[in-house]
Amino acid sequence: MPATHTDKAFEQDLRDLREKLLAMGAKVENLIAQSMKALTERDSPLAEKVVAADKDVNRLEVEIDELCRRILALRQPAASDLRLITTALKIVTDLERIGDLAVNIAERSMDLNQVPPLAPYVDTPRLAELAQQQVKKALDAFVSGDVAKAEEVLQGDDLLDALFLKIFNELLAYMMEDSKNIRRATALMFIAKHLERIGDHAMNVAEMVVYMVRGKDIRHPRSRNLPE
């Protein structure tokens, strides 16, 4: 059982912060799933719901930022508390961006749902599943302060990149085959790119989790001439 803060109000602030981040994380995970369902099941009303639900995510971003500012101003956090706050301030941006990308996927889905499908969606839902898993794993790592899990996320990104490249090449082939495919293929390519970007944001979260737990910033080793 870790020691708790003597100041109970401070303890409560930190608990609120974690809970809000988790709630936000759960919401964006859900938005990814829903936006993909809107595509695969050609459910445009569901896509509209995704677009509307994004405002909850945006609101949480503002609330979390505000809570962090308040804690910084009033509590002058140190050590692991300070690392938690700085991590929260960073990952809240990644989570909000993931929400935006889910909205973009939903919007593309609405377009695609109005025309016959180009081909059965196989790899794109698989990519979505991987992206969603990466987000979930990164958030789990944040909650439990689990560096091993964060590192799994960092290593897992190659899989998403490879799958994205595969989808990209397939869609390119469709375009070359028939210029009538270009519109749909481009929309799908955007969706795949959004999913790949979601994976990148999950990686950012995972990197911050490593910082939060270890106090070591592992980002951009090559730019800083650090061993990878």
């Binding site: 050590a79 300070l82 270890r214």
Partner: peptide
């Protein structure tokens, strides 16, 4: 103040004593 090595230091600087 950002990353103490010892648990007791961590507890003190974060106000957990």
């Amino acid at each position: 103040f950002t990353n103490p090595r010892e648990k007791r230091t961590e507890d003190y600087v974060t106000g957990k004593f």
